[in-house]
Design a protein around this nucleic acid. Structure first.
Lengths: 346, 346
DNA sequence: ATTTTTTGTTTAATCGATTAAACTTATATT
DNA sequence: AATATAAGTTTAATCGATTAAACAAAAAAT
């Protein structure tokens, strides 16, 4: 019942020509198809008068292109991802693409659903922040030759395009920073996960300690489950600070972990940074407003998002485009939460 | 180049029948169209074997329905809106709709663009968080009989479906709460805006003061511009706390204002709530982690989003559906930032 | 045995835009 | 004048699914 939209045919009949001519003119092919000058002008005129808007469905059905990108995000409640989603959206629009977004809530099944829904909607390509155990989906896309770019997370054992942060380096930097500022007992709270980026964050931390010849205690590294983060983090923190050789600094491997952690740290009346120095991945206002602003790793969100779109667009236009694997550095933004315990070494 | 997708025709030729039969069977019309039993079974079998997925473009082109909802959000960097976007998305999916989202960045022109892009994409309906000066767009949708629901903000002078918070009451409650807890000099920082919800927030605050027979000073109400919020808020706060009759409590009319305000309050070494009590609209982790957790108005995000979808879906199925205008109450979540200055009255 | 009804299946138009190929004219070439 | 070439326009197929209408064959009614 809504809008009897103006179609090519309407214009054609008003101009008393065939739809072919109208199509040629309005899609800028008047030259190649040698359309008469006066007619061309007339058609344009009528199209404008009638406020013609082409029907994308028909166009897409014919061309097999929808100019739509499917964006699958692992967890949209994380402001980092929310941010990146909008950047992707903006950048895609700039390239003439519309984005449809879905959040998989870190769940591979939900991610499959989204993938299928989007494929049925004939999206031209995907940008994906993968959730755990979704390797099969990646293989599926490769098999079907559906263009896609992995964003922020990738699988080391699958050859794909991706745009990610150099998590190993970021984590290493964070560890080194704390050590150099006099924190000799640095812990990390991470998610228990097979995801490569998480493993890298852990490894970077471990190597930072190792390279500085610091002893490491098992309980300094806490890998918590994704479910019941809040509770798991409490247990983790208790386990880090209470035994012999308690940590005096913690790196949170994600924004969500940091939020849960800081809440508990407040509750426990631990003082940052005197009792516990903090560095975290992720970024949001919460870190600025904390009584002791939190040192964090700033990922180049904008560049990540834009690059992902750029690569995908190229790939969609030319599937033969070579594979691009891009790692970007995060920047450590130093704030009060990691203030020197003593004069920094070096 | 991507996926030679299985079509009805492929199934038809494999089953050696016409596409009509296949269509009837696969769209569950075998009964009405009295399709032979064995054939029906065979077709289903083949469809499954070939993993048939219908082409939504073709379906939509024929039916005129895309089962897509356009969601236009005024400002996606606000976690309140980000949240609501995901709820809308989820709920829509539950109803068989896909959502395409766009952020207008509080800009009417951008909002127009989005509206047109989405209309061209043949969305079946809209959910809109309006930006200022976008009345024309609303009228346009009404004229064209395109189903839509306004979310969170509406125009008092235009008769439309909407689902909003009762901002007047929320603001009134916030004011009353502060007054009852001993803050006699309550200020408000709001945006300078024609938007009804903002006016309501201001009015609620003013009436709370008025009803308690408290004197009001011009400088207690600061309406700042949307551009350069950060700077504007600083000036506003200075203007509130420095003159004669300085405020000892502030209500922030939005989350964004609160973030800017709290940053400046930290800088200025004003102590919350002793120097300045705080109540804010909006919600996010930042409020929990603040050294003195912030009292805020919790809007029923989930219910708002779900209801908007529900109303829109009904409207899309039956355009004659009567207009629904829903106001929901926000809940004041009391935290330390508005702790009693003295024993509460009453 | 003939007509009517029921059952099962196919044909063809449709949604709106695109585009190769066919078809007219008009103009240029010999 | 006959023919080739260019210019301008239309026809019709196509993308994939839907569905009214036509059709054919079998079953029921007379």
């Amino acid at each position: 019942m809504y809008k009897k939209k103006v179609s090519l045919k309407d214009i054609a009949s008003k101009a008393k020509v065939s739809t072919a001519l109208v199509s040629y003119v309005l899609s800028g092919k008047e030259k190649e198809s040698r359309v008469g000058k006066e007619i061309a002008v007339k058609i344009k005129q009528i199209a404008k008068e009638m406020n013609y808007q082409p029907n994308y469905l028909a166009k897409s059905l014919r061309s097999g292109k929808t100019f739509t990108i499917g964006l699958i995000i692992a967890d949209i409640s994380n402001p980092f991802f929310a941010n990146i989603a909008w950047i992707v959206e903006d950048e895609a629009k700039r390239n003439g693409y519309t984005v449809i977004i879905g959040s998989s809530h870190e769940n591979a099944d939900k991610s499959w659903d989204l993938l299928n829904v989007f494929i049925n909607r004939q999206v031209d390509g995907f940008i994906i922040v993968s959730s755990e155990n979704s390797e099969k989906q990646v293989h599926y896309l490769k098999e079907k030759n559906i263009p896609f770019v992995l964003l922020d997370r990738h699988f080391s054992e699958i050859q794909t395009d991706f745009v990610c942060t150099n998590n190993y380096k970021a984590s290493y930097d964070a560890g080194l920073h704390l050590i150099k500022h006099g924190y000799q007992r640095v812990g990390m709270i991470a998610y228990q996960s097979q995801l490569f980026h998480m493993k890298q964050r852990i490894q970077g931390y471990l190597d930072a300690l190792g390279d500085q010849n610091l002893s490491f205690h098992q309980h300094w590294l806490q890998e918590v489950k994704f479910k019941n983060t809040e509770k798991e983090v409490k247990i983790a923190i208790d386990a880090m600070v209470s035994p012999e050789f308690p940590v005096n600094a913690v790196i949170f491997a994600t924004y969500g972990l940091a939020i849960s952690g800081l809440k508990y740290i407040n509750q426990s009346r631990l003082k940052v940074p005197d009792d516990l120095a903090i560095v975290s991945f992720g970024q949001a206002e919460a870190f600025d407003l904390y009584y002791c602003p939190i040192t964090y790793l700033r990922q180049p969100i904008e560049l990540l998002g834009k690059t992902a779109v750029e690569i995908l667009v190229k790939k969609m236009k030319n599937p033969e485009e070579e594979t691009r694997q891009i790692l970007m550095d995060a920047k450590l933004i130093v704030r009060a939460s990691s203030k020197s315990k003593k004069i920094p070494i070096s």
